[in-house]
């Protein structure tokens, strides 16, 4: 039901055609503000019902590892929010295999279900988008 009404709203409503949006995340979570900013933009822009994917590559893969406890550095741990994305109908999360492996990580180390893809597939994913937002 949600999807059907979402589609109608998009075709006839303010947004026009549904576009493919890719959020590219390449930074570790707490050293800079990029990761949190990206997440906030994703959550806000979810209201526009577009075709959204998230890509995690390079140090961006560190954003979604399990076991983050930020109390000792007195910073908000925003990693649980990635698990809320499903409720926002954002379910396409991609991790680049080479980036993951270079950092000693495995698929089961992530806090959310992701699809692990190689550099070639990641390149194709980027190429197939209407809009790319980099963080």
């Amino acid at each position: 039901m949600t999807e059907a009404t979402g589609g109608i709203e998009m075709e006839e409503g303010v947004g026009g055609k549904v576009k493919k949006f890719l959020y590219v995340n390449r930074k570790a979570p707490y050293g800079t503000i990029y990761a949190l900013e990206s997440l906030e933009v994703v959550l806000i822009a979810a209201a526009f019902d577009q075709d959204v994917s998230l890509a995690f590559l390079d140090d961006g893969v560190y954003q979604i590892v399990k076991g983050q406890h930020t109390k000792p550095i007195d910073v908000k741990n925003f990693s649980p929010a990635y698990r809320a994305l499903e409720g926002y109908d954002i379910e396409k999360l991609f991790v680049e295999k080479e980036s993951m492996e270079a950092r000693g990580l495995k698929e089961e180390d992530f806090i959310v279900p992701v699809k692990v893809i190689g550099t070639q597939e990641m390149t194709d994913l980027m190429q197939s988008q209407d809009v790319i937002l980099s963080f």
Partner: peptide
């Protein structure tokens, strides 16, 4: 020239 390049290509991706 920067603007021309951005216009010529269907999408732009920034590597930061």
């Amino acid at each position: 020239g920067f603007v021309d390049l951005a216009v010529e290509h269907p999408s732009v991706q920034a590597w930061l």
